[in-house]
Simulated scan of single mutants.
Amino acid sequence: MPFVAPQQAKSAQLKAAAKLESAAGARRKEHALAYLFLAPSLLIFGIFLFYPLLKSVYLSLHLTDPRGRVAEFVGLSNYKNLLGSTAFWNSLKVTALFTLLTVPAGIALGLIAASLTYSSLRFMRLFRFVFSLPLAISVSTASVIWMMLFHPTLGMFNYFLAAAGLSPVQWLTDPTYALLSVAAMTVWMHSGFNFIVLLSGLQGISQDIYDSAKIDGSGPFRTFVRIIVPLLSPTVFFLVIVSVIGAFQSFGQIHILTKGGPAGSTEVFVYSIYKEAFMNYQFGTGSAMALVLFAIILILTVIQFTVLEKKVHYQ
């Protein structure tokens, strides 16, 4: 009998070890199956995201010839020259101003349109369709449309100014108005997306909240400012993040409407990268600028998540 208990204990240990080994094998099979399903996506990300990123890091440390071939290793000289360039700081200032002009105005316009069309009155679906139309228009198409509106002699804006007895404005060739004009076009172009997202956020708020506020004697304006807007803060926070990233990546409308002019007044950061890489054929400097832009967007996003998310009210 004294020898039975140790044998039973050893048998139990063997069974426990076998179960652990079986569980570990099952987990390995699950992980292998998961990576098998993820393999196509990882391959696509590797080809179109990770490889270009690593290639940009490599090129940013070198000088290149017009064909993009590496000519000389220069280390961090591209970054030092970039930070000492007045063109770099001008494009950064223009991009920051462009972001300030487009992001708050775009979100405010979308919020107003969503609030006006939230009710279930007749023909509201038609207005929702109209307000969401800019989402279906490409950047190039929208830019061509607004280029005709901004035309100094044939454009509708100057036609209305002339009808009011005012002097015409050189919308795209005057440094005072060029960035404002491009910003106005960008706000309109993004209004469809902002409208749909904010309308979805409004529709996600329970009707009981409106009824409770009405019973407590809260007027429509007070209810909207003190109750609805805080409940919309997660949606607004999402739009702020996406809009800031989109503003820093704006290129198409700048390229079509102003080509960075006049006198660099609309030369945003991405257009500077385009000029440096594909007009001046300085792919090393262009890659360094692209990585700096990546770092700026990353820092801004982290700051927004650190600071702004504290003011977000989740239900």
Rank of each mutant, 00 (worst) to 15 (best):
L116W: 10
N90P: 00
P104H: 12
M124T: 15
S167V: 04
A87T: 06
W89G: 04
P175W: 06
V169Y: 11
F127D: 12
A113H: 02
L154V: 11
H151A: 12
W171P: 02
N158K: 04
S167G: 08
R128D: 02
A96Y: 01
S138D: 11
T95D: 00
T153R: 09
A136F: 13
L109H: 05
F157R: 00
H151C: 03
V169A: 10
L121A: 10
L100D: 10
A113L: 13
P168K: 09
L161P: 08
A142D: 03
R122H: 15
L154W: 14
F157V: 09
S119L: 12
L166P: 02
W146L: 03
M156F: 13
A162I: 04
T102Y: 02
R122G: 08
A114E: 08
V144S: 07
T99D: 07
A142S: 15
L83I: 10
L101P: 04
L133N: 09
A164F: 08
S91W: 01
I112T: 11
Y118Q: 10
L135D: 01
S138Y: 10
L121R: 10
A108H: 07
F150D: 00
S115R: 13
L161Y: 05
R122T: 14
L154I: 15
T141E: 13
M156E: 11
A114Y: 02
A163V: 07
A162S: 10
A163E: 07
W89P: 03
T99G: 01
G165H: 06
M148G: 11
S91Y: 01
F98E: 03
F98N: 00
K93T: 08
